[in-house]
């Protein structure tokens, strides 16, 4: 079955789903952030799609909003599929997918640590790399780089 035919099946189940093929970029499926858990459930457990591995989980700060990219891989059909969703910067919340892919736990903690995106349903969400008491989210584009807490800046500031 071709990809287009499979995509039509997805379109019947999910209303606001679109196929994005921009210039100089990989093809990806964009979906509303509320439907991401439903979509990943179908993509993983439906034998038609059979994406059994979350290869990587990427967050990007697009300044107005955040983009999350779920990079799926199927070991049986050797296919990759990228799912993208946009999250509003001011209420950065999205459902956790740790129930579907257990490997996403570290990824979600890392994205929470670096971007401040909250994953609803992940009970153990915490900072992964930065100290627990760290203020701010380093990979956001508006993060101030000459932080006075850094050792090489402390003398200048105080």
């Amino acid at each position: 079955m071709s990809f287009d035919a499979k995509f039509d099946i997805l379109k019947e189940q999910f209303l606001n789903i679109e196929f994005i093929s921009e210039e100089n970029s990989f093809e990806k499926i964009r979906i509303d952030s509320n439907s991401i858990v439903g979509l990943l459930n179908v993509l993983k457990y439906d034998a038609l799609f059979d994406f059994d591995m979350l290869s990587s989980f990427i967050a990007v700060d697009l300044k107005d909003n955040f983009e999350l990219i779920y990079d799926l891989y199927s070991t049986n059909s050797n296919k990759s599929l990228q799912i993208s969703t946009l999250i509003d910067r001011n209420s950065a919340k999205v459902s956790s997918i740790t129930e579907i892919f257990k490997s996403a736990h570290f990824d979600e903690c890392e994205i929470f640590d670096m971007f401040g995106i909250e994953f609803l349903g992940n009970k153990n969400l915490k900072r992964l790399f930065m100290p627990k008491e760290w203020v701010g989210y380093p990979l956001r584009k508006d993060y101030v780089l000459d932080d006075s807490r850094l050792a090489w800046n402390s003398e200048v500031k105080s």
């Binding site: 210039e23 100089n24 970029s25 990989f26 290869s55 990587s56 990007v60 990219i69 990079d71 990228q82």
Partner: peptide, 22 residues
């Protein structure tokens, strides 16, 4: 580098290494 994004995959000794570049 012209605007765009790409994921490159390499089979490293400790598993898949992929680099997402935007």
């Amino acid at each position: 580098v012209p605007a765009g994004e790409y994921i490159s995959n390499v089979e490293a000794p400790r598993g898949l290494c992929s680099c997402y570049l935007k």
